[in-house]
Design a protein around this nucleic acid. Sequence first.
DNA 1: CACTTAATGCAAGCCATCCTGCGTTAAGGT
DNA 2: ACCTTAACGCAGGATGGCTTGCATTAAGTG
Lengths: 199, 199
Amino acid sequence: MTEEEPEPVRRRPGGRAARVRQAVLAAAMEVLAEEGIARLSIAEVAARAGVNETTVYRRWGSREKLVLDAMLVGSDEGIPVPDTGDVRTDLAAFARALAEYLATPTGRSVAREASLSSEDPDLAAAWHTFWQSRLDQAGAIISRAVERGELPADTDAALALELLCSPLQTRSLLGHRPIEPDLPERLTDLVLDGLKEKR
Amino acid sequence: MTEEEPEPVRRRPGGRAARVRQAVLAAAMEVLAEEGIARLSIAEVAARAGVNETTVYRRWGSREKLVLDAMLVGSDEGIPVPDTGDVRTDLAAFARALAEYLATPTGRSVAREASLSSEDPDLAAAWHTFWQSRLDQAGAIISRAVERGELPADTDAALALELLCSPLQTRSLLGHRPIEPDLPERLTDLVLDGLKEKR
DNA sequence: CACTTAATGCAAGCCATCCTGCGTTAAGGT
DNA sequence: ACCTTAACGCAGGATGGCTTGCATTAAGTG
């Protein structure tokens, strides 16, 4: 098992290959937004990209990997992380942005696809990285609040955000209940203050 | 479009039909627990039930409906709802039970399948009923706490339970992070007390 | 410009899922 | 015991996702 490559297989990053990749990923995002995750077939994506079906199968292998790749590239902007100087305002804004994203066809599809591909260890790992980077970004809200003395120093940022976000994700995933407009605010209040009244 | 049936088609609830239904649903649960949701095919279930493939297709129509039916029948015991006289203890025990259930192959499959079939309105509605009945049962924990004066009267039981349960569901669904043994307790504390220290 | 060879296109085929027509079995009524 | 017919089994076939072999195109190099 030599880790080095004896013959440095000459790759071709420029020109056609890049164009094809671009076109396919764009087409995948397009189908994802319009048709949803269920009706996304390789055939459909290939047709829209003006590329042969075989090419897609050879380059990506499976539908899951294609969608994941499209996500990592296309949905790179992510959810904006506000910084207003107040935890409650920040968290509420973040939750609202997440809710809006999850209401998007694309957002729904992303969440759905992530849950679908949690069987394959490689894909699960890739999604883990994806979520982790988002969580780390949002963690700044908590750490800033700790610095300002709004929250105790031993606050678990990851868990707190999980508490805030997962109800939204669950509603989007299971789809049995809509996300009401005031839900982000109510969740924020609950997460910050807890159930017990004591002020 | 007459809603009534002119000829009262004589159903046959007894005997073979019932046996077949029983055998197929049992086989479905079995496959679900052993193989997982991904590898559950009609052919596999039919073979285990000793029934022809065609029969399953005709009676249930799709894989999703079959699994849903199996869930509604087989997983009817549900999560036990404790009543110890203390909210924190009750909630923690409930969360722990849910976590254990979600760690089960069957539990994982149930959550997975529910998210898969949230496209079809009929299936989504059926799952909504399913979750709703579970939530209503667990809601007793909150209402009892309110009666005891442990929680304010305007506590939203459904939202509170959602806050407690959805992190567990999300971890199970997205599968990118395991459910640590102390997570239920930590969630319970967070839900009850909130992030801010004020005691 | 000529050459090598990734990368793509095209066509055929495989496989599992799912459907359809028809004959057979057995449940429920007489 | 007999009849009617709902429910089932069986065989064949359509469909869609996925793979494979071979010809063609064009990127990178001298």
